[in-house]
Amino acid sequence: KLKCQHCNHLFATKPELLFYKGKMFLFCGKNCSDEYKKKN
């Protein structure tokens, strides 16, 4: 199981990947990825 970088939920589906500031982040979906980008 993977943990979403934004909402901290565990998920087993294909993660949404975001490469940001030289790091890779995993998200449970596009919505969390977009929210994370807005906040950072």
Rank of each mutant, 00 (worst) to 15 (best):
K1G: 03
K1S: 05
K1M: 03
K1A: 02
K1E: 06
K1C: 04
L2I: 09
L2V: 13
L2F: 13
L2S: 14
K3Y: 05
K3A: 05
K3W: 03
K3S: 13
K3D: 03
K3F: 06
C4S: 01
C4P: 01
C4Q: 00
C4H: 01
C4L: 01
Q5Y: 09
Q5T: 06
Q5K: 03
Q5R: 03
Q5M: 07
Q5S: 03
H6Y: 15
H6W: 07
H6T: 08
H6Q: 07
H6M: 14
H6L: 06
H6I: 04
C7M: 01
C7I: 00
C7A: 00
C7E: 01
C7L: 00
C7R: 00
N8V: 07
N8P: 05
H9S: 11
H9A: 13
H9K: 14
H9Q: 14
H9V: 14
H9Y: 13
L10K: 13
L10H: 12
L10R: 15
L10V: 13
L10T: 08
L10Q: 14
L10C: 10
L10W: 13
L10E: 15
F11C: 07
F11S: 07
F11R: 03
F11G: 04
F11M: 05
F11W: 03
F11I: 03
A12V: 03
A12P: 05
A12H: 05
A12Q: 10
A12E: 10
A12I: 15
A12W: 05
A12S: 08
A12C: 07
T13E: 09
T13M: 06
T13V: 07
T13I: 14
K14T: 11
K14M: 02
K14Q: 06
K14F: 02
K14D: 08
K14N: 07
P15D: 11
P15A: 08
P15M: 02
E16W: 05
E16Y: 03
E16A: 07
E16L: 05
L17Q: 15
L17G: 10
L17R: 15
L17V: 10
L17S: 15
L17F: 04
L17W: 15
L18W: 12
L18P: 02
L18G: 11
F19M: 03
F19S: 14
F19T: 11
F19I: 04
F19G: 09
F19P: 15
Y20W: 11
Y20Q: 12
Y20N: 09
Y20E: 14
Y20L: 13
Y20V: 12
Y20T: 13
Y20H: 08
K21C: 10
K21H: 12
K21T: 11
K21Y: 07
G22S: 10
G22P: 02
G22L: 03
G22C: 09
K23W: 02
K23D: 07
K23I: 05
K23Q: 07
K23R: 07
K23N: 13
M24I: 15
M24P: 14
F25V: 12
F25K: 09
F25L: 14
F25R: 14
F25H: 06
F25D: 11
L26M: 12
L26G: 15
L26K: 15
L26N: 15
F27S: 01
F27C: 11
F27A: 02
F27M: 09
F27E: 01
F27L: 08
C28F: 00
C28N: 02
C28V: 00
C28P: 00
C28D: 02
C28H: 01
C28T: 00
C28W: 00
G29V: 03
G29H: 02
G29T: 05
G29D: 02
G29Q: 07
K30D: 05
K30S: 10
K30P: 06
K30C: 03
K30R: 10
K30G: 11
N31V: 08
N31Q: 10
N31G: 11
N31M: 05
N31I: 04
N31Y: 05
N31S: 10
N31W: 09
N31R: 13
N31P: 12
N31F: 03
N31T: 08
C32V: 00
C32F: 12
C32S: 00
C32E: 00
C32R: 00
C32L: 00
S33R: 09
S33D: 03
S33F: 02
S33P: 02
S33L: 07
D34A: 10
D34L: 05
D34Q: 11
D34V: 12
E35T: 06
E35P: 02
E35Q: 08
E35D: 10
E35G: 12
E35S: 12
E35L: 07
Y36N: 04
Y36Q: 05
Y36S: 05
Y36F: 10
Y36V: 04
Y36D: 01
Y36E: 05
K37H: 11
K37V: 11
K37Q: 14
K37M: 03
K37S: 08
K37C: 08
K38A: 14
K38V: 12
K38E: 12
K38T: 12
K39G: 13
K39R: 13
K39P: 09
K39S: 13
N40P: 04
N40K: 06
N40H: 06
N40D: 13
N40Y: 03
